[in-house]
Design a protein around this nucleic acid. Structure first.
Length: 224
DNA sequence: GCGACAG
DNA sequence: ATCTTGTCGC
């Protein structure tokens, strides 16, 4: 993907771009039927980041294919600015897929972010496609622990705004922090995450991407 | 100033 | 994210 802007190299350059992209996020109903769903995650090898993307049939959850990309890390990890560190690799991995997914589940937040532009929303705006933020821990917001049964959820509220939900994808297991990324509503995001979560805590596309990233990390040539 | 803080 | 083995529990 040819980015419509120069990639930020520091916080000063990232801030204005983040504000601009945040204004483009849309929490609207899914634009159409979902036939395929992708999952993305990353791992680090020295000063390089390896991103893995998976593609599944949404209806049957049948695995279709996977792809990956390796990039040099050019931005530090700063809470609230994760996109500028990981998005380049994620976009590259997604481009390697044979066809663009109808929905992307991202390991990280959607609008449950200080400025409403977590990495899932960031990618959604750049891709112009529906995305969901599926994080393993909280970045912002207050909530009450959801009930222990699978499917139970409580709202995640930040500064008086409902920015996502704390969802129990498996009974008795730590919940996930789900939030709309772009072009999707919270209820649709919750339904999609539950639909994709059958046996493990993470939605299948995200879980397999996670496993693949870890595998690539082990097999990649030692950087030095 | 202090504490919080996706991956 | 990553450093790190075994171990408790279903």
């Amino acid at each position: 993907m040819n980015l419509p802007f120069a990639w930020p190299r520091n916080l000063a350059e990232a801030k204005p771009l983040q504000e601009q992209l945040a204004r483009q996020v849309r929490q609207s109903p899914l634009p159409g039927a979902i036939r395929t769903v992708a999952g993305i995650d990353a791992a680090f090898v020295g000063d390089r980041i390896v991103a893995a993307a998976t593609l599944f049939d949404y209806q049957t959850l049948e695995f279709l294919c996977s792809a990956h990309a390796v990039r040099e890390v050019t931005f530090p990890y700063i809470p609230g600015y994760l996109s500028f560190r990981e998005a380049p690799a994620f976009l590259a991995a997604l481009e390697q897929l044979p066809s663009p997914p109808d929905l992307v589940i991202v390991d990280g937040q959607g609008i449950a972010h200080p400025r409403r532009l977590g990495i899932a929303s960031f990618l959604g705006v750049l891709l112009g496609r529906p995305t969901i933020g599926s994080a393993k821990s909280r970045l912002v917001g207050e909530y009450v622990e959801p009930a222990m049964e699978r499917g139970a959820w409580t709202p995640l509220v930040d500064r008086g705004e409902e920015v996502g939900a704390v969802l129990r994808t498996r009974s008795g297991i730590r919940p996930l922090f789900v939030s709309p990324g772009h072009l999707i509503t919270l209820s649709e995001a919750l339904a999609a995450v539950l639909h994709c979560t059958v046996r493990y805590r993470l939605p299948e596309p995200q879980r397999v991407a996670d496993r693949l990233a870890a595998q690539l990390k082990r097999e990649l040539p030692a950087s030095c």
